[in-house]
């Protein structure tokens, strides 16, 4: 994996070794990089080199913070460490963030033991303590790190922005620091990536409906395709926006607990607005759009479970057993009615 260059890197001498020192302030290019990644551009290739870095002016007694080599995670940490002197041990998590790589096990016990050995951490610091982000615990067994390399693990706060308060409190985290959130803003920044993820399927469906819109009992007419097709494309896009936008953004306020139900509600909302705007045609086509929009929005919001911070696998499987057959049935019915609508 190609790694990103860190701007304004310098070097410090410690224990007879040259160690790269990163600034605690982000460079303009770091912010631009973050913005691009948030939009889904080059997101899978946004890594920094694993290894040991210095921030501030650390010595042998300074704390060691462990991070992932996803540049967003790394930047989030170093930006918050301003004013602290410490070491950052960057693991090779294949350019994936802490929580997700911990789920895969790449941010894990073996990699920590391995990386501590590679950088020779015992020759750098006098203490034997690593501070990990709490969410790293999904991939790390603290007692096994201790037996593996002699370093004990202290789980720090979940969010890098709490790290200074955590250190000042004598490495004690408040209950709030230990609880994962999923705020409106958290969901908002995920939207562009979610939108891009499913875009190719939606564009394909839109193109298909555009072409099919030319079909009628009188044969094929490109004029009809243009007239009805644009409307069809808009409706499909609105359904997708309902599932990928309204569903995630208004998650806590949409009724129900399962994501597919919340998505259904978002879909019904979108469908009603489309009907009010007179975009759903009449007769069979009207009913068709109701089913299609509901099915699409429900399915798309259901897929937001993966990005959410509180859905369990058991719960997701349970809701899917009910929702997926219904979504398929609704979509098939909607498509059938829509085709019938072309001929009546």
């Amino acid at each position: 994996m190609k790694t990103q260059r860190i701007r304004n890197l310098s070097f410090i001498e410690h224990s007879g070794r040259k160690i790269p020192k990163v600034p605690a302030q982000l460079h303009l290019s770091d912010w631009i990089g973050t913005a691009k990644v948030r939009c889904g551009i080059g997101r899978m290739n946004y890594a920094v080199d694993p290894g040991l870095y210095a921030v501030g002016d650390p010595d042998g007694d300074s704390p060691v913070f462990v991070s992932a080599n996803y540049k967003l995670s790394f930047d989030a940490l170093r930006k918050e460490l301003g004013g602290l002197d410490g070491w950052i041990l960057v693991l090779d998590t294949k350019g994936v963030n802490v929580w997700c790589s911990a789920g895969k096990g790449t941010f894990g016990t073996d990699e920590i033991v391995n990386r501590v050995g590679i950088v020779g951490l015992e020759t750098i610091v006098n203490h034997r303590r690593l501070i990990l982000p709490q969410l790293g615990a999904v991939g790390v067994a603290a007692h096994k790190v201790k037996s593996g390399c002699g370093f004990s693990v202290v789980y720090g706060p979940i969010r890098a922005c709490d790290i200074v308060a955590f250190m000042q409190a004598g490495m004690k985290a408040t209950d709030q620091m230990r609880q994962v959130r999923f705020s409106f803003y958290d969901r908002l920044v995920l939207l562009p990536v979610e939108f891009v993820a499913g875009a190719k399927y939606v564009l394909f469906a839109m193109a298909l409906f555009f072409i099919m819109s030319g079909i009628s009992a009188r044969g094929y007419s490109s004029g009809l395709a243009l007239h009805d097709g644009v409307r069809s494309m808009f409706n499909l896009f609105a359904a997708y926006a309902g599932g990928a936008g309204i569903g995630p953004l208004f998650l806590p306020w949409l009724p129900g607990r399962s994501f597919s139900f919340k998505g259904l509600m978002a879909g019904l909302l979108v469908g009603s607005v489309l009907a009010l705007l007179g975009l759903v045609g009449s007769g069979a086509e009207k009913v068709a759009w109701l089913f299609l929009v509901a099915a699409i929005a429900s399915f798309v919001t259901m897929n937001f479970t993966g990005a959410s911070t509180y859905t369990s696998l058991s719960g997701v499987k349970k809701e899917m057993r009910v929702a997926v057959p219904l979504q398929i049935a609704a979509a098939a019915l909607g498509l059938g009615l829509w085709i019938i609508g072309r001929f009546v």
């Binding site: 929580w99 997700c100 890098a160 994962v180 958290d186 995920l190 993966g306 911070t309 696998l313």
Partner: peptide
Amino acid sequence: EADSCCCDESDSDCC
């Protein structure tokens, strides 16, 4: 088996 593959799409643990 259900894997953690789509997790790549979420950056929600960042501040």
